[in-house]
């Protein structure tokens, strides 16, 4: 039996209307075929490749060409992309704005990436800016956040979060905190906390609630990876163990409650790595270690199966 047979039966039984039947049958029989994903993939790859090429070209020829030859075309491209996007995109709204033209989305992304190249060039050219490179990075991150919200653009939001993460890393490295790994872990937790608070705050204010996933995925992964790293570091405080167990537990519970099973898997995987790392470090016997892995992994499988049965099938 084929999909078309089901559809015909449902139409005859009155479960679906004739127009619904025709619209769905056109998809099932592929009389209608969308190349939306393919066009987006080509644009995304095109933007990434172009910016990589621009960065490499500027790096290679900046001293030979001079400042104007680099800055004028770059600025023109950034301004052009932003002007195009502003002219073609709907007005700002706190709610999700469905994109009708992918070119607008990628123009904004291209503008932000090119602006990053421009800033990098300026930072290197002007000694005065060189000392404020981290401040510029933070400012550019803020600008990307504004652009992401103005144009409802997830790519630019990811860019903004990545830039903010870069600022945390660069800023703290300059303060010498990475000389002590525990400080580096605190810094990573600070970044995760900042992202989580920012995401939660904007969601609570009703501003682009659909962006919350991007914040949560980053915050949870950075936080859990950091506490797991703390557990695996034998010189670190035992508090990391408590943090890892509590963090994994909270993530799993939150994932189950909100039926977001990616977070259940994050909590399970990071929690398992932390606990296994701790146990295996104290087991000197190889056979016992393997036996532990068998028993623990089977226990996790049983637990996940029970969970899957309880919560039913969710994406």
């Amino acid at each position: 039996m084929r999909s078309t047979d089901y559809l015909a039966r449902w139409r005859e039984a009155g479960a679906i209307s004739a127009p619904q039947h025709d619209a769905i049958a056109a998809l099932v029989t592929r009389r209608r075929l969308s190349v939306f994903a393919e066009i987006n993939a080509l644009l995304y790859l095109g933007v990434l490749a172009s910016v990589a090429g621009v960065a490499a070209t500027v790096r290679t020829y900046s001293t030979r060409w001079g400042m104007l030859v680099v800055l004028v075309p770059l600025t023109a491209m950034v301004v052009g992309c932003v002007a195009y996007a502003t002219a073609r995109s709907p007005d700002y709204s706190h709610e999700r704005i469905e994109s009708t033209n992918p070119l607008v989305d990628y123009a904004v992304y291209l503008a932000c990436l090119l602006f990053g190249v421009e800033l990098a060039y300026l930072t290197q050219q002007f000694p005065a800016l060189r000392g404020r490179a981290d401040d510029l990075l933070l400012a550019s991150s803020a600008l990307y956040f504004v652009a992401a919200y103005r144009f409802d653009n997830r790519f630019v939001l990811s860019l903004a979060i990545a830039a903010l993460g870069g600022w945390f890393g660069v800023r703290l490295a300059s303060l010498g905190v990475f000389d002590d790994l525990s400080h580096a872990r605190n810094a990573a937790l600070g970044f995760a906390g900042t992202i989580a608070v920012l995401g939660a705050l904007l969601t609570r204010l009703g501003v682009k609630r659909h962006f919350v996933d991007a914040y949560l995925h980053v915050a949870v992964n950075v936080a859990l990876a950091t506490v797991t790293w703390g557990v695996l570091d034998s010189t670190a405080s035992r508090l990391w163990v408590v943090a890892a167990v509590v963090g994994a537990g909270v993530t799993i519970a939150g994932g189950v409650r909100r039926r977001r099973f990616a977070f259940v898997v994050y909590g399970t995987v990071y929690g398992y790595i932390a606990v296994s790392g701790l146990v295996l470090r104290n087991l000197n016997d190889f056979e016992a270690s393997l036996a532990f892995l068998v028993v623990s992994a089977v226990s996790v499988v049983v637990g996940l199966v029970a969970l899957a049965r309880k919560v039913g099938r969710q994406p």
């Binding site: 190249v117 630019v156 830039a163 600022w167 890393g169 660069v170």
Partner: peptide, 19 residues
Amino acid sequence: SLTALATPPENAHATARTN
């Protein structure tokens, strides 16, 4: 779009190099 996290802007790289 989440993969864009793996491509930080060029000024992040440059700032790291500067430091």
